[in-house]
Structure formats: structure tokens, C-alpha cells
């Protein structure tokens, strides 16, 4: 009986050693990929800005300051998430100083392919650009829940962030 345990333990030790090596090799690459993706998303929702500066509270990023070439703040970028049809929908939005939305992008979603997944398409997302009041945005037909999830998440978070920057 003990022999069985020892053999299994030996196999597990070899396997975990191997995985530790692979993990060490791939970890920096995975972190780099996440950073690249974050940067691309930030640029996509606030193309007017040059650099982005994260504003943190207790180690979690609340929003990013979007700065132009001379370091003057043009607006902010924030992430907003809400419950979609199947799981959480997460959007990133750029907002000018006056509270107008610059652009938004859906960064994570798991909605029905062909229906809810249309929230990632430009035709839906473009409606947000240069709007302050988001109540006029048309939901995608057949994907009302997914569309509402994006609209409401951005709307609520935008109001919250507006309050935050006003108090500074």
C-alpha cells in the first residue's frame, strides 16, 4: 500500500517541478501580454491622450488619468462591469473633463455568440462617443440584457467617477 503512495508522490513531485520551470519561463510573458492589452484598450477609449496614470486606492486601480503631451489632464479612463446575460460584462470607458464619454470598449464578456456578443461591435459602441446622457442609446435587438448591462454599468460608474473628480 505504502508503495502506491510513494510512486504517486514521486510522479507528482516530478510533475510539479516541471510545471514550476514552465511557470517561471512564461510568467513574465503573460504579465507583458496583459500590460500590452491594457495599454491598447486605454489608447482605444481615449485616443486624444498620450500617457495614462493609474490612480490607486488600497492597491486597486480606481481609474486612470488621461494626460496629453505636456502632462495636462484631458480626462479619465475607468472600468465598469455589470451582470450580462451569461456572466459579467466588463467595459472600459474614456471620459472627458466635462463628463462627456470619449469612447468605450468591451474588454471582457461571455455573452451568446451572434447575439449578446454584438456588444463588442463598433455599431453599438460608437453610440456612446461624445454623449453625456446615456439614456438615448439604442440596445441591440435580440440582445437587450447584454446591451443594458453595458449601458447601465458605464452610466453608474461614470456618475461615481464624476463625483470623485469633482471633489479633488
Amino acid at each position: 500500500m505504502i508503495k502506491y503512495g510513494l510512486i504517486l508522490a514521486l510522479i507528482c513531485i516530478i510533475a510539479s517541478g516541471l510545471l514550476a520551470c514552465v511557470n517561471t519561463l512564461t510568467k513574465p510573458l503573460i504579465i507583458r501580454q496583459a500590460q500590452l492589452e491594457e495599454e491598447a484598450s486605454l489608447k482605444a477609449v481615449f485616443p486624444q491622450a498620450e500617457t495614462f496614470q493609474p490612480i490607486k486606492k488600497d492597491e486597486t486601480i480606481i481609474y486612470y488619468q488621461a494626460l496629453d503631451k505636456s502632462g495636462i489632464r484631458q480626462g479619465v479612463v475607468f472600468k465598469a462591469s455589470g451582470k450580462g446575460y451569461s456572466g459579467v460584462v466588463e467595459a472600459m470607458a474614456g471620459m472627458f473633463e466635462d463628463g462627456t464619454i470619449a469612447a468605450i470598449k468591451v474588454v471582457a464578456q461571455n455573452e451568446t455568440p451572434g447575439l449578446g456578443s454584438k456588444i463588442t461591435e463598433a455599431r453599438f459602441l460608437e453610440q456612446f462617443s461624445n454623449k453625456k446622457d446615456l439614456s438615448g442609446i439604442q440596445a441591440i435587438s435580440g440582445a437587450t440584457i447584454s446591451s443594458r448591462a453595458v449601458i447601465n454599468a458605464v452610466k453608474e460608474k461614470a456618475a461615481e467617477i464624476r463625483g470623485l473628480i469633482k471633489n479633488e
Binding site: 510512486i7 504517486l8 510522479i11 507528482c12 510533475a15 516541471l18 510545471l19 514552465v22 511557470n23 512564461t26 510573458l29 503573460i30 501580454q33
Partner: peptide
Amino acid sequence: PCYIVVIATFVTIAELAMKAY
């Protein structure tokens, strides 16, 4: 259980490689 450990090891390698590349 031995097979599963071997298979899971390769799956994790594949997953990490996919995440990285």
C-alpha cells in the same frame, strides 16, 4: 491517478504557453 497527473501536467504547460503567446 498517475495518468491524470501526467495529462494535467501537459495541459497546464499548454495553457501557460497559450496565455503567454
